[in-house]
């Protein structure tokens, strides 16, 4: 019997930064569900809170930032024993419980593989360190596992490459090394924050393919943050769309692309060319500016830019994220009922 409960459920997450100039409400209501063995995309304009959401999951938010409220439910199933649910939002950032999950159960890769790896430690040093943190193995065994992992992510001559420094590898190889590092302890969830943005198109495709392959092998889920709707269409099972710190729509990929519900999602679809799909007509940039994060608009955060806003309602009351009847999609918009 397959386990149907979601691996990760983020509910009503709010993460704020308390600056002298005011409070930046970077995440102001994120609801994201990640089923087991699936790929979930987070999309949205720059600054909408994708990275902050991802960092919140691993409690990587630093002062003056803080998770203000919400739950991050992580379901872990030990080999033998009942399923456990942990609310990551309640763990202390540097606590033993949190550190066990970081790297061991949930791993992360980043946009810039060169700066995400230490320039003065060898690739092998950085990978074996992660292995030995989470597994009771000797240095020699850890090295052996690291070599296997490098081999698995497609790095040629891993016995030699393990002793090189990141700056001696090409961009694509670096991201492969980063993937080897993050998957070295076989996590159940991989959070990838724009993992291919810094790479050329061919390498992008290779890295994405590799990630999907490894997902299959390791039975893990992927939370993929990206600007690129084409990437989402090709790789993700589900998508969460974020606007100004809120998840405004969540749906399976096919439904979202065929029938975007939220006016922001619709605008996003019109503004971005989609890979493999002929441009029907002109591209249509979203009108207006993203409001500055100190002064969120009253009511629906999108209303100053929305072409379908309902005067007297949208600029007064915030809509809630609501599941549409008879589907597993959810939308945060007054157009879809109370």
């Amino acid at each position: 019997m397959e386990n149907q409960t979601p691996l990760l459920e983020i509910k009503g997450l709010k993460t704020y930064f308390f600056l002298d100039e005011g409070i930046v409400k970077a995440v102001e209501g994120a609801d994201i569900t990640v089923p087991r063995k699936s790929t979930v995309g987070i999309v949205g304009e720059s600054g909408c809170g994708k990275t902050v959401t991802a960092y919140s999951i691993l409690q990587l938010i630093e002062r003056p930032g803080r998770i203000e409220s919400g739950q991050i439910l992580w379901r872990r199933a030990p080999e033998n024993g009942p399923e456990e649910v942990i609310d990551l939002a309640t763990l202390k950032p540097n606590s033993r419980a949190m550190r066990q999950i970081r790297g061991g159960e949930i791993a992360m890769i980043f946009q810039e593989p060169l700066t995400s790896l230490s320039p003065v430690h060898t690739v092998g040093d950085q990978i074996t360190e992660a292995i030995r943190l989470h597994r009771p193995v000797s240095a020699a065994e850890a090295r052996e596992q690291a070599i296997q992992m490098l081999h698995r992510v497609g790095i040629p001559k891993p016995e030699q490459r393990i002793d090189t420094y990141p700056f001696q590898l090409s961009g694509g190889m670096r991201q492969r090394a980063m993937i080897a590092l993050s998957l070295s302890c076989h996590p159940k969830l991989l959070i990838a924050d724009e993992p291919t943005t810094a790479l050329d198109v061919t390498t992008q495709a290779q890295i994405l393919e590799l990630m999907l392959e490894l997902q299959n092998d390791f039975d893990m889920s992927i939370l993929l943050i990206t600007h690129n709707l084409g990437v989402v269409a090709e790789t993700c099972d589900r998508v969460a769309v974020m606007y100004l710190g809120e998840v405004v729509e969540q749906a399976d990929t096919a439904s979202l692309f065929n029938e975007p519900k939220h006016p922001y999602t619709q605008a996003l679809m019109r503004s971005i060319p989609i890979l493999g799909q002929r441009n029907r007509g002109r591209l249509d940039p979203i009108k207006g500016m993203v409001p500055d994060p100190y002064n969120r608009p009253k009511g629906c955060a999108f209303h100053p830019r929305c072409t379908q806003r309902i005067a007297g309602l949208c600029d007064q009351k915030s809509p809630l994220l609501q599941t549409l009847p008879g589907s597993d999609r959810a939308v945060r918009c007054w157009l879809y009922g109370e």
Binding site: Y55, L60, R99, I101, T115, S116, L117, L133
Partner: peptide, 20 residues
């Protein structure tokens, strides 16, 4: 970013800072 990588692999804070 490599400091975040160090934390994200599960290193204790003091070790993440001293080593990297």
């Amino acid at each position: 970013p490599y400091v975040i990588t160090a934390r994200a692999k599960g290193l204790p804070e003091w070790k993440a800072i001293l080593k990297y």
